[in-house]
Design a protein around this nucleic acid. Structure first.
Lengths: 339, 339
DNA sequence: GTGAAAGCGCTAACAC
DNA sequence: GTGTTAGCGCTTTCAC
């Protein structure tokens, strides 16, 4: 079966390839009758332009790369939703890459992007990413990068993030307001700006409320370690925390399970609040108080910023940064019976 | 900044473009010393091949399209995980498209694929998809399509699905074994083979156990309707069901909420079992009995089948179909106090 | 309003 | 082992 190309259309209509090309682009140079003929034949033969030929010429792929740690995480899934919505609207295609928190993979992926496969990149770095050379190198090749959620401090570009410090502060304050005097915080990595910001907010809330900050109440739960065991140990401490802040949704399950295992009641013995976009939060046992990030909006904002930059002659991204606020939703896991 | 192409390397080393191309591909035709020189310079100048130029020549994009209804669904998210894992390994790239259960979008997406953007497609159709002409048309253009989970009966190609009939049967039997005499089943669409198969399994289990099938216990919850209201109404029926099978995870939340609203206890008044891959199932209130689909494996299997076909001269997919079994995990939502 | 020519960066066929 | 030639399908001058 013959491949329908512009040439084929040209031959059939006794026109040149150029004319066909222009007609298909609805160029003002081409007469209305000619355009009609071209459109009709194209439809009839089911012509679809070869995207690679076009990309090779124009140096535009109409494709963006999305690099994220996981997709089995409601935050990132919703963010992709937002990204994809904008991409569809703008005629862009979305290449998804999962790093699984592996820095080497992230590096390898970004390196590939230099080959022109994507016009721009939306990135949420791994928890292992300390060095951002690979990102800068990509940007040096004129491939714009927009961070969302997890950004690198030392890279100057658009960043779509939430008010992490404030959210950490609010979560902590919420626990304190509901009677906690020694809340703990669970983090995923000390490399991540989100972790640090949330931790700083936590510290600040303690300070304002004249509570002592204790290093032992900060628990690092990285990919490689057994969070369940670590959390259990934390809760078996002689002076166990009376509140827990999960800085990442994934930690909610091990916290709930550890409490169950130790016969600790949530919220009577331990109050729990998580950074979570899990829609099941309402039907958990007990229902989960949460800092909900505007994941969909963040995805949309990040994609919008990128496409906006892409449409310009000179790519300029620094002024596209945004901080979008999270919201605190109170449910039973932080309920205060003594109030 | 000059773009580093094969030509540039060729000029610098006083070799032809062909030689560079072959050397970079580690061809046996090229001498070891030459290869070394080429590799070294390529590394030095940070050469990255232009993928579009290559694709234009070879007619291979090393890219697959994944078309799914949603990504904010643990099943599909895990499936993507599996797909991406295989793709990475094989050097393929993954373009993700979300239909949001919209048939017109699905059609438009598949049409675009004819432009050579992808070498093959992994597809889980929308709940609205009755007509599969668009899929057949794509396959006519020699773009192989592999279905996973949601397949079209009238398209002959590889299908990676679960044992839906059996799972529906087992879920129903599980409810009956735990004392239900009038279980209801919640479906998303009558177009979907998965819905029909699961429904047939349900019917069969009723029959085997001499229970009467009642049309009013089959509830269609499509995208556009308010499932919560419909479920509530079902549960307010004079002879309300004493068990509910959610044929899709998304329905679990409205079921739990409706029960709470009506002060019906799960599992005392109503037992619930869902087709679900939600990791939070263990910490729900009550914990959720579930038919768990091997989502990751299905994604892997679908991608593997596609890549296998792609690597062959003649694309042959029908014998790559697989049925992978779901498993039933019993938890508290179907607990039988009278046993 | 239309077309001829050139070329994007790469690779395959074929010569040497 | 290496080079020459041609061309993938499209767009972009520039000429007519």
């Amino acid at each position: 079966m013959e491949n329908i190309t512009i040439k084929v259309l040209a031959k059939r209509l006794n026109l040149s390839a150029t004319t066909i090309s222009k007609a298909l682009k609805n160029s003002y140079e081409i007469s209305e009758p000619t355009k009609q003929k071209v459109f009709q034949l194209a439809a009839e033969l089911n012509y679809t332009p070869n995207v690679y030929a076009g990309s090779l010429r124009t140096k535009k792929s109409l494709t963006v790369g999305v690099v994220i740690p996981e997709v089995t995480d409601n935050f990132f899934a919703e963010a992709i939703n937002g990204i994809e919505a904008v991409a569809q609207e703008k005629g862009y295609h979305v290449l998804v890459y999962l790093t699984h928190e592996n820095y080497e993979r992230e590096k390898a992926m970004l390196k590939e992007f230099k080959g022109g496969r994507v016009d721009g990149v939306l990135l949420s770095v791994t928890s292992e990413t300390k060095d951002s050379t690979h990102i800068k190198q990509l940007m040096d090749e004129n491939i714009p990068v927009v961070f969302f959620d997890r950004a690198c401090d030392d890279v100057t570009t658009a960043k779509i993030i939430t008010n992490d410090f404030e959210s950490g502060y609010n979560a902590t304050l919420h626990l304190i307001d509901n009677g906690c005097v020694q809340p703990a915080i669970l983090l995923v990595s000390q490399n991540l700006s989100i972790s640090n910001e949330r931790l700083e907010g936590y510290k600040q809330a303690l300070k304002v409320n004249h509570l002592k900050f204790k290093e032992s109440y900060v628990l690092m739960c990285d990919e490689r370690s057994n969070s369940f065991a670590a959390i259990k140990k934390l809760l078996q401490h002689k002076k166990r925390p009376d509140g827990i802040i999960c800085s990442v949704d994934k930690l909610t399950i091990p916290v709930y399970l550890a409490c169950k295992d130790l016969k600790l009641s949530i919220p009577a013995d331990v109050k729990v609040i998580s950074f979570s976009n899990n829609p099941s939060a309402v039907i958990l046992n007990p229902s989960l108080s949460a800092i909900v990030q505007p994941a969909y909006e963040m995805g949309k904002a990040a994609a919008t910023a990128l496409f906006k930059a892409l449409s310009k002659k000179k790519i300029e991204l620094t002024d596209e940064s945004q901080i979008i606020s999270s919201s605190l939703v109170q449910r039973d896991s932080t309920y205060n019976y003594n109030k």
